[in-house]
Simulated scan of single mutants.
Amino acid sequence: MEERHKNIKPIYDLVVKKVFCNEAVALQFVQDIFELPAKSAKLIGGDKIFLANSNVEDDFNIAVDILVELDNHAQVIIEVQLAKQAFFTNRIWAYLCKQVNDNIERLKQNENERHAIYKKLPPVYVAAIVDRNYFEGEEAISTFLIKEETSNTELKMYVDNDIKEMPLLKIVFLELKKYKPELKESYNKVRWLEFFGNKQYTNEPGEVIDQADDLLNVRNWTKEEKDMYDERTRQLDHQWATYAYAREEGIEYGMAQGIEQGREEGRAEGIEYGMEQAVITLMKNGHISPEVAAEQLKVNIENLDKYL
């Protein structure tokens, strides 16, 4: 299927930040994906396309891509992931827990009574837009809730003085690679797969999605935004090109080692050794993360030391 935009990737983190800086777009996304009765949304984190929203150390940066607050005080983290990470679910949990803790600390500063802190503590939800598949099955949109094991009763909470209960936890994965035009999900949700997956729309996407598409028009960007996007694109292209080159080098090296040994098992071992060295070199040079390296080597991240 032909891409809607030839010169822009909607899934790049810089672009996603720019899209959700439009609060009407952020609100529509939250309403569609989480089915929450929100009337307004305010961006309270990730409002710069060129700066990470973080106040923690660089070596342990768990700053979220986008943080949206709804008029009922509920908060939604929107996280984007291009490459598959072995511990991405753990990372999402860290983001969510940190945000809950930040909310508690903020309320402690403003509330004198402990009871008021719990009363005003908002729920935090997560949307993960991923360009690699994480789950088995063909469902492109997966929603996770907390439910009672036998009765399937969902755990909910009240938000301040709102009379309507809200889910205590909600995590939604949008797996873009699983998109098919014939998906049976509500089109209000499917259109976001089409938007971020750069697919042609199979129905009228609606006015807000049209606004979001307009934000992808590079001609309307500032020079700073264009320069940042070009730099980010060069970085990603270099990273994947380096990985592809190293992979080929590793295979060639492994084949040479195997041929020299003159045994089929030696050839297999040589290829494996060459691949291992290529992955470790990429990680040492900062081209891939330890999580990606662990996944390629099929080991837990804690066991990477034996390759160093």
Rank of each mutant, 00 (worst) to 15 (best):
L215G: 01
D227A: 14
R234M: 09
M1V: 11
N203R: 14
V100N: 02
F50V: 14
G274W: 08
D71W: 09
G270R: 04
N198Q: 05
Q261K: 13
M255E: 05
I92F: 02
L82S: 07
L236N: 01
R191Q: 13
N53H: 10
D131R: 10
L14W: 00
K298S: 15
K170T: 09
F34M: 10
L96E: 14
V279E: 02
F20W: 04
E136R: 10
I280Q: 04
G250L: 10
H5V: 09
R114P: 00
E113Q: 10
E265H: 11
Q85I: 00
A293Q: 07
G270E: 05
I271Q: 03
R4Q: 15
N112R: 05
L297H: 13
A128M: 10
A140I: 09
I33W: 01
E302A: 11
I259S: 01
D71K: 03
I8L: 09
A241S: 12
Q261C: 02
Q85L: 04
E138A: 13
M255N: 00
I301W: 03
L51D: 06
N133L: 00
A94L: 14
L121H: 12
L216S: 05
E269A: 12
V100Y: 13
I92D: 08
K184M: 11
E113L: 12
M283W: 09
N7T: 12
Q235S: 04
T150W: 06
L96I: 08
Y179R: 04
I11C: 00
I209Y: 07
E194L: 07
E264W: 13
I66Q: 06
D102V: 05
E69G: 03
R106P: 00
K306W: 03
N285S: 08
Y179N: 08
A278P: 05
Y245F: 13
A86W: 01
M228R: 07
E248A: 15
I163A: 11
T281Y: 11
C97F: 09
W240A: 00
A116S: 15
L67S: 02
V56Q: 15
L193P: 03
K177N: 13
E260K: 15
F87N: 14
L36I: 11
Y95E: 09
S54F: 02
K84C: 01
V100D: 00
R234W: 03
V56N: 14
I209T: 10
R247H: 11
L36M: 14
E136N: 11
Y118P: 02
D160S: 12
K306L: 01
L145K: 12
Y95Q: 08
E249A: 14
K199G: 01
G250H: 09
E264V: 11
E138C: 08
R106H: 10
F34G: 04
Q257L: 15
E182M: 10
V208W: 03
F135N: 09
W192E: 04
Q235V: 03
E175R: 07
Y253H: 07
L236C: 00
F20K: 08
F173E: 06
A94I: 14
K189G: 05
Q296R: 15
F196L: 10
W221F: 12
D13W: 05
Y158P: 00
L297K: 14
E295I: 06
E148A: 13
E69I: 01
L169R: 03
I11K: 04
S142N: 15
I288H: 06
L27N: 02
T150A: 11
N55C: 03
D214E: 13
